[in-house]
């Protein structure tokens, strides 16, 4: 699966002349495989962690004490331990616990699972603050107008929550762009892993600069997109 998503680009590019334009683009081409992997990791993490975060948030707000406690514990572990450690646990866990042989493909899944689980915890807390910012009067008005609990959430609370949470979500998304580089811990070949490798074999720091530039531009785009979204959600207030 990982192999399918990562287009194999030129690896047999001439790297002899370290000053020429050809060499420069050669490095970029080599890195582009990593860029693609980072991008995929980023998109899939958001795709899974955002809905999962909502589930965790519901659990955290459950009126059943046990469910609430489990959610609280989950959030505190995910936020209280290093993401890199969590990635290692997700990746090596199956091997140590079930003695399952680790496939290279599992690296990709492990990265997605690790990131999604971790970011879900952060998103859950952001959603919770967003829900709690909706005044009690909104629920009361909805109740008197006969809305069911589900309708109240979908039509009244959720849209207002989304508006409240956009700024902290933007922060989280920007952090995620940079955090994707942590996947090197489980030897998942993303942008940063590649940059380091090329930098070492070619003994030049240039690939690392290119990597930095990549994250920076990526985040410029993210900030711009989130800014547009925020503006769009500001139709009332």
């Amino acid at each position: 699966m990982a192999a399918l998503l990562v287009p194999s680009l030129l690896t047999s590019c001439s790297l002899d002349d370290k000053s020429g334009l050809g060499w420069f683009f050669g490095v970029i081409l080599q890195l582009s495989e990593g860029m693609w992997a980072s991008l995929v990791l980023f998109v899939l993490t958001l795709l899974f962690s955002m809905p999962l975060g909502l589930l965790v948030c519901f659990a955290r707000r459950s009126r059943f004490k046990v469910v609430e406690l489990i959610a609280k514990f989950y959030i505190s572990i995910m936020r209280g331990t290093p993401l890199m450690l969590q990635l290692l646990v997700v990746y090596f866990g199956p091997y140590f616990v079930f003695k399952v042989a680790l496939s290279t493909e599992y690296r990709f899944y492990a990265a997605i699972i690790g990131f999604a689980l971790n970011y879900a915890a952060y998103f859950a807390e952001i959603y919770r603050s967003g829900i709690e910012a909706v005044p009690k009067g909104q629920y009361e008005a909805a109740h008197v107008l006969g809305y069911t609990k589900a309708q109240t959430f979908m039509k009244i609370v959720f849209p207002q929550m989304v508006r409240h949470i956009l700024p902290p979500v933007t922060n989280e998304v920007i952090t995620l762009v940079k955090d994707t580089s942590l996947a090197f811990a489980i030897a998942f070949v993303e942008m940063f892993t590649l940059a380091k490798q090329i930098s070492a074999t070619e003994s030049t720091i240039m690939p690392l600069f290119v990597a930095g530039l990549f994250y920076y531009i990526f985040n410029l785009v993210v900030s711009y997109a989130m800014g547009l979204l925020e503006k769009k959600m500001n139709y009332y207030s």
């Binding site: 008005a141 107008l145 809305y147 309708q151 039509k155 207002q160």
Partner: peptide
């Protein structure tokens, strides 16, 4: 209510018509 409790993300018209349409 004393403090109205209108739905801020709905227009005036939608505030008025949404409940009759969706709850009634």
């Amino acid at each position: 209510f004393q403090n109205f409790n209108l739905f801020p993300h709905y227009t005036v018209l939608k505030n008025v018509i949404d409940a009759p349409i969706h709850t009634q």
